[in-house]
Computed example of a mutant assay.
Amino acid sequence: MTNTTSTTEISKDFADKAETSVEILIQQLNAMWEGLVALVPSMLIAVVVLVITWIVARFAAKIAGRLTGKASMRPSLRQLVDTVTRIAIWVIGLMIALTILLPGLTPASLLAALGFGAVAIGFAFQDIFENFMAGILIMLREKMRIGDFIECEGVEGRVEHIALRETHIRKPDKELTIVPNAILFKNPVKILTDVTKRRHEMIAGVSYDTDLEDARKVILNAVQNADHVDQDETIDVFAREFNSSSVDFTVRWWSGSQPRDMHQSRDTVIRAVKAALDNANIEIPFPYVTHTFKEPVPFKSSDNNKD
């Protein structure tokens, strides 16, 4: 009897606890549902705010595009203005939507949370943000425009597109190289087409028995009459050094700054100098090799030369 009574009491206690737990769970679910239903108007208003933010961002970007289009601004700087305008409007719209959705969230606490989150995200995505900031600074500075031919860290080509995180460089062989903006910002960049003219040079050698003044005049005259050479700029012909088999001249002239201009002018100058030196009977020596021996080298005459 005693054992049966104890078992019954235990079962009854378990049933009571289970019933109590179910009631608590139901109450919590009802509270969550009521809270969700109460939050629906705020959610709808927040969605409406986001839609309005999207519309305003597009409208503001179009206005910014028209304003920057009238001004003499580079395409990359116009893109920066458009991006910054969109980001600023979206930040304001998201802050308003979060404040409506969570009434207890004040703008001050939201800014504090965003500040702490920005620090944490900044450490986690340091390289991404570094390239992002470098892209903004590259767009703001005056030099290195789209279409410029540049050289940086072994990458040489024409700037095709400047984005916030990367720059697209098209090599002369049409190969596309995507370079992180941090590399272009932290390292020296050669802008070969910053101006329309560029100085080129080559080395011309003549033999040691040549009158150097005559050779200089022949080379100078040849370059002055060559095609693709800017005759408005100074053409220089300077004796450079005593080389192993020749006396070398440095020949300098001006032509266009584009890579093709360099190749065309170099081709015409080299061919003109070669033809002029040949016509003047001035030797362009190739390397000579002179062998010396410590002792005389014996030579044996052939049978045909015995007489």
Results as ranks from 00 to 15, higher is better:
Asp214His: 12
Arg198Lys: 10
Gln264Asp: 11
Ile10Tyr: 06
Val195Ala: 11
Arg78Ala: 04
Met133Pro: 01
Leu80Glu: 01
Ala204Arg: 04
Asp211Trp: 01
Asn30His: 08
Asp148Gln: 03
Thr177Phe: 06
Gly104Met: 06
Val237Cys: 05
Ala64Gly: 11
Pro296Cys: 05
Ala118Val: 05
Leu184Glu: 00
Ala38Asn: 14
Gly256Thr: 01
Leu137Ala: 12
Arg66Tyr: 09
Ala38Gly: 15
Pro107Glu: 04
Ala226Asn: 01
Lys171His: 13
Met43Asp: 04
Ala97Lys: 01
Arg78Gln: 12
Asn3Asp: 14
Leu44Cys: 11
Pro287Arg: 09
Ala15His: 07
Ala64Met: 14
Glu201Gly: 15
Leu98Trp: 06
Arg271Asn: 15
Thr193Gly: 03
Glu295Gly: 05
Asp230Ile: 08
Thr193Ile: 04
Arg216Phe: 02
Val84Pro: 00
Val273Thr: 07
Ala97His: 02
Thr5Pro: 01
Gln79His: 07
Thr53Leu: 05
Ile146Gln: 06
Gly104Pro: 01
Ile52Val: 15
Thr290Arg: 13
Glu156Met: 07
Lys12Pro: 02
Asp82Leu: 13
His263Glu: 11
Ile203Leu: 10
Ser21Trp: 06
Glu213Phe: 05
Asp278Ser: 12
Asp267Asn: 14
Thr106Glu: 06
Asn279Gln: 15
Ser244Ile: 07
Phe299Gln: 09
Leu220Trp: 06
Thr68Trp: 04
Cys152Asn: 03
Ile284Phe: 05
Glu233Ala: 13
Met139Tyr: 01
Phe149Tyr: 13
Ser42Ala: 13
Trp54Lys: 04
Phe238Gly: 10
His200Arg: 07
Ile191Leu: 05
Leu220Ala: 09
His263Asn: 10
Val195Phe: 13
Lys12His: 10
Val155His: 03
Ala97Pro: 03
Gly104Arg: 07
Ser21Leu: 14
Ile183Ser: 03
Val289Gln: 09
Lys70Tyr: 13
Pro103Asn: 07
Glu156His: 05
Gly65Leu: 12
Gly256Ala: 02
Glu130Asp: 11
Lys17Met: 08
Leu184Cys: 02
Ile96Cys: 12
Glu233Pro: 04
Gly135Met: 01
Lys190His: 15
Phe293Val: 14
Val289Ala: 13
Ser42Cys: 05
Glu201Asp: 14
Glu283Arg: 05
Leu212Trp: 10
Ser255Gln: 04
Gln224His: 10
Glu166Met: 05
Asn305Asp: 15
Ala163Cys: 04
Arg78Glu: 09
Asp303Trp: 09
Leu110Ile: 06
Gln231Thr: 14
Ser301Ala: 09
Ala60Thr: 08
Lys62Val: 10
Leu192Cys: 02
Ala113Leu: 15
Glu175Ile: 09
Glu34Tyr: 08
Ala226Glu: 00
Pro296Leu: 11
Gly115Asn: 03
Leu29Trp: 14
Leu67Asp: 04
